[in-house]
């Protein structure tokens, strides 16, 4: 499956794009996505361990299986307020 990943803040700046297309086997987890992101986009690699991952509008843990067609976003720790 192809997962379209939205990027924000420093993650977007490092990758140089707002979205990345990541090819993953069906049944892949958030942890698999994290690893593939680092391999595929070298500029993101230093930030990968600290990236937060959202599936839909909820935070996801590394063991969560990514449902096909879901909206996925990756971003560093938040700093609103």
């Amino acid at each position: 499956m192809t997962v379209s990943v939205r990027l924000f803040a420093r993650a977007r700046e490092l990758a140089g794009v707002e979205r990345l297309q990541v090819d993953l086997p069906a049944g892949s987890t958030v942890g698999d996505l994290r690893q593939t992101l680092g391999e595929q986009t070298a500029t993101l690699r230093p930030l990968v361990p600290q990236l937060l991952v959202a599936v839909g509008t909820d935070y996801a843990t590394d063991d969560m299986v990514i449902p096909e067609g879901s909206e996925v976003a990756c971003f560093p720790p938040v700093s609103g307020g």
Binding site: R10, L52, P76, P77, V78, S79, G80, G81
Partner: peptide, 29 residues
């Protein structure tokens, strides 16, 4: 509300420092 907002709501600030540099604020990074 304000304490949790700062922890979980996906909003980010970027500093524009007086020396002309910019920097995303990402606590712990």
């Amino acid at each position: 509300l304000i304490d949790r907002l700062k922890e979980v709501v996906p909003i980010w600030k970027q500093e524009n420092w007086a020396d002309g540099s910019t920097e995303w604020v990402h606590p712990g990074v």
